[in-house]
């Protein structure tokens, strides 16, 4: 068992309206097999016992699929390891004596609730605007009635993998949500059953995205690199293409 000593510099903010600041904590003998969130658990046990308020942070499945956790660690959303969320990041990725700056996702559309917990309901509102196929329960045909080639299904799956964690927004210099929305639009518009509503869906989702206060895409591609599911920027391109169609349709009719 290998252990390291580290300093964490964490963003503390009491609530949505309070002013936040950074606080330093020293952690000794951290087992390198620990996950990053388990390290925060250890920090919290210590804080609790010493009469301080523990750090609020979101996490749920702790296996990289629910998308609940997320923090910017030393300037990198979900930390230094590619294609993982912070719950899958392990302390062996850090060195003895290192200082870890831990910050929340920073975006106007993701206001802080407490410490590094942010409100990502903006994503849900975008989804409510049109991120679905309008099929009612029980009104469907046989599952094999629509044939879909394997590569289309795979490409749709590539996009559908999005866990909605918000790392793309955190990574984007403009705090843009284009990779999230692009992935959703792309997933549904690739499949034949999703094509029917495609044009309307894009228009509605993009309108909602703009309303939420996300920045716009300037093709910096940071999102894709920080995405724990490595969603490709080609899905943004697909959305852009569909948006032209949607606009022409809404202008010309």
């Amino acid at each position: 068992m290998k252990t390291i000593n580290i300093t964490v510099k964490v963003w503390r903010q009491e609530n949505a309206v309070a002013k936040g600041h950074f606080e330093d904590y020293k952690l000794t003998e951290i087992d390198t097999d620990m996950s990053f969130l388990e390290m925060l658990d250890v920090l919290n046990e210590g804080l609790t016992l010493s009469g301080e308020l523990p750090l609020a942070f979101d996490s749920d499945c702790r296996e990289g699929i629910c998308g609940m956790c997320g923090a910017v660690v030393n300037g990198e959303p979900h930390g230094p390891v590619k294609a993982v969320t912070i719950c899958q990041l392990h302390m062996r990725s850090f060195t003895d004596g290192q200082t870890l700056v831990i910050e929340s996702w920073r975006s106007k559309a993701f206001p802080v609730i407490k410490d590094i917990v942010v409100d990502r309901s903006a994503f849900d509102r975008i989804m409510m605007a049109g991120g679905y196929i309008s099929v009612k329960t029980g009104t469907t045909t046989d599952a094999n009635a629509n044939l879909i080639t394997s590569d289309i299904a795979e490409e749709a799956m590539d996009a559908a993998q999005c866990i909605g964690c918000g790392a793309c927004v955190a990574a984007c210099p403009n705090a843009s949500a284009m990779l999230f929305v692009g992935a959703k639009v792309s997933h549904l518009s690739l499949l034949p059953q999703g094509k029917i509503e495609c044009v309307e869906r894009v228009r509605k989702m993009v309108t909602q995205m703009d309303k939420e206060g996300f920045g716009s895409c300037s093709n910096e591609y940071e999102c894709s690199v920080s995405c724990p599911k490595e969603i490709n920027i080609s899905h943004i391109a697909r959305m852009n293409r569909k948006m032209i169609k949607a606009t022409i349709k809404s202008v010309v009719g």
Binding site: T140, T141, S150, M157, A160, H187
Partner: peptide
Amino acid sequence: DQCVAQGVPFARDYDG
């Protein structure tokens, strides 16, 4: 049937 209609990208064989 329901899930396919909702756009669940189930794995497909080469014949679709």
